Amino acid sequence: MGASIIPFIVFTVLWGGIGGVLPIIVPKGPNRGIIQVILMLTGACCWLFWLCCYIAQMNPLIGPKIERDAILIMARQWGNPIQ
Rank of each mutant, 00 (worst) to 15 (best):
W15F: 15
C53P: 01
L14G: 04
T42G: 07
I66M: 01
I24M: 07
P7H: 09
V21G: 03
L14N: 06
P27K: 05
N80S: 14
I38H: 00
L22H: 02
I35E: 01
G79E: 09
Y54E: 13
L14C: 04
G19M: 08
I55G: 04
P27R: 03
I24T: 09
L72C: 05
V10D: 06
G17K: 06
L14E: 06
I35D: 01
M40L: 12
I73T: 15
Q83T: 13
G17P: 10
I9G: 09
G20M: 08
I71K: 02
I6K: 13
Y54V: 05
G2Q: 13
Y54M: 08
G29Q: 08
I18K: 03
Q36T: 03
G63I: 10
P7I: 12
W15T: 05
G29L: 06
C53K: 10
I71V: 15
V37W: 02
L48Q: 05
P23V: 10
L48V: 13
I5G: 08
W50Q: 02
D69I: 09
I71L: 13
G29I: 02
A56W: 07
V26I: 15
I55W: 08
T12E: 09
D69M: 07
P81A: 10
R68D: 14
V37Q: 08
P60K: 06
L22Y: 10
L14V: 14
I66K: 00
T42H: 03
G20E: 06
L51N: 04
G2V: 13
M58Y: 09
N80V: 15
I24K: 08
W78N: 14
V37Y: 02
G2L: 12
G79F: 12
P7A: 11
G29M: 03
N59M: 11
F11G: 05
V13P: 03
A44S: 13
W47G: 01
G16I: 10
C52Q: 09
R76A: 15
G16P: 06
T12P: 02
P23Y: 08
L39W: 01
F11A: 02
W47N: 02
Q36F: 00
I62T: 11
C53I: 13
L51E: 02
F11P: 00
L41I: 14
L41P: 01
A44Y: 07
Q83A: 14
I62L: 07
I62C: 02
A56F: 10
I82S: 01
A44D: 03
T42S: 10
I5L: 13
I6M: 12
C53S: 15
N31L: 02
T12W: 06
P30K: 11
G19A: 13
W47V: 04
F8V: 15
L72S: 08
L48E: 03
A44F: 12
N59E: 11
L22P: 01
M74S: 14
A56N: 12
L51K: 01
I5P: 03
P23L: 11
T12Q: 06
P81R: 06
F11M: 13
N80F: 15
P60C: 10
C52P: 00
G29K: 00
Q77F: 13
P64D: 09
N80P: 02
G63A: 15
L41W: 07
P23A: 11
Q36S: 07
P60N: 06
L51W: 07
V26K: 02
W47M: 05
C45G: 09
Q36W: 01
I71G: 00
I34L: 12
G2K: 11
